[in-house]
Design a protein around this nucleic acid. Structure first.
Lengths: 216, 216
DNA sequence: AATACGGAAATTGTCTTACAAGTACACATG
DNA sequence: CATGTGTACTTGTAAGACAATTTCCGTATT
């Protein structure tokens, strides 16, 4: 049950901290993270810092070439479109299965309820429930590997969000409404229609996102 | 252009060698790989061996718990079904796109021609062209991340193959015939039928595979 | 003045050594 | 025979050092 403790290993702890700082926006895209600096900041040995950085590079959160210092990944518009296209493949399949079973995951319903309550809040606050909503759909597939792959994508999706930061790309109300419509189609067993709504939902979101990234 | 050289870094070289040995069957599933042993074999420092092992653990080729020596992953029947289910999601989407464009990737056609020529050969020899056939379909999606994810899955697929080793699960002739039928449906623009054939192709393969793994 | 060359600084890649911490297995003991 | 303990083995982390590579800046040349 070590997973419930905050620290499993020093490397893991550093990884967690860096991830949190990246997602919070404290470490903005492009920020350099040298091994010695990270080691000094956390008071750990350089190999430890190195291992943490390599892990984050593998996740796509950091980018680095050989003999160059790692930097927080700066995603392009092309990247955003690619990420959303990939997630759409997985989520569409999940939605088709759920619709075939006419099974609406309770976590998805709860996450969307949370979004509905946050109509006036900052767009940053809806990132978390929004991600939980979509993750709940994928989770329903019940595939360990599909979920793992989607979790990886989720990291990059969150990174996308930090790029746009406070920019309001879509209204909270619209998002909640589209989610609700999707859940309704699932409950009605409309597999094709549900998949179509999801794909359209992701397409409009990624277009807005790409448009915003292009303007940077 | 360092990628064309055999050695980019020592860690990478060790990773490559271990991967090859795992896929060749020299390192059978369950084989323990202690850090000190790997370091001694390749005459590298333990941290270097450690980094290589950690990379392979991340790929799923090796398995290890904290403070325990890594072992070549032993896949269960459940794992095989999960792997094939996940790859089916991605490949089905690729096939649907290709059929919509009526575009048959030349690499897929060439890979299947290679399989056809190997009707009498050992089942091990068709692993490579078979994997290339399926990879060509996914490559056609033109998505960097989808391809990367599929490449990861490919590692586990190859690992599956080493588990069954010489066991003839499906006849080479049948495989080539199903591939040919799939390509034909793609060229005819039969999106739904092509996807269905692919899913059936993967389902029968994974069932045979799972059945065989269950009996171990 | 612009460009090419050369060198110094910074950073990563790897190795060596060392010790701490955890796990597993055998052994002794009740 | 079951249980607890201790030891050997393995991994986790640290500290220091040197090699290799890249980047950047200053200098010299055209």
């Amino acid at each position: 049950m070590a997973a419930r403790l905050g620290v499993v290993s020093v490397v893991q702890a550093v990884i967690r901290s860096l991830r949190a700082r990246i997602f919070s926006g404290e470490l903005a895209p492009g920020t350099p993270l040298a091994e010695v600096d990270v080691a000094a900041q956390y008071e750990v040995a350089r190999p430890t810092a190195k291992a943490a950085l390599e892990n984050l590079v593998a996740s796509g959160l950091l980018t680095r070439n050989a003999h160059q210092t790692a930097r927080v990944t700066l995603l392009s518009a092309r990247d955003a479109l690619d990420i959303y296209r990939t997630r759409a493949i997985i989520e569409a399949e999940a939605v088709r299965l759920l619709a075939a079973l006419r099974e609406v995951p309770s976590e998805a319903r709860e996450a969307n309820a949370e979004i509905t309550e946050l109509v006036g809040a900052s767009p940053i606050d809806i990132i978390d429930p929004d991600i939980r909503f979509h993750a709940a759909l994928v989770q329903a597939l019940g595939s360990r590997r599909t979920s793992a792959i989607y979790a990886q994508l989720t990291d990059e999706i969150r990174l996308c969000m930090t790029h746009v930061q406070d920019a309001t790309l879509l209204s909270t109300k619209d998002i909640a409404a589209e989610h609700a419509r999707l859940l309704q189609l699932i409950s009605e067993g409309e597999t094709a229609a549900a998949a179509k709504v999801l794909e359209e939902h992701l397409r409009t979101a990624s277009n807005k996102l790409a448009e915003h990234l292009e303007s940077l």
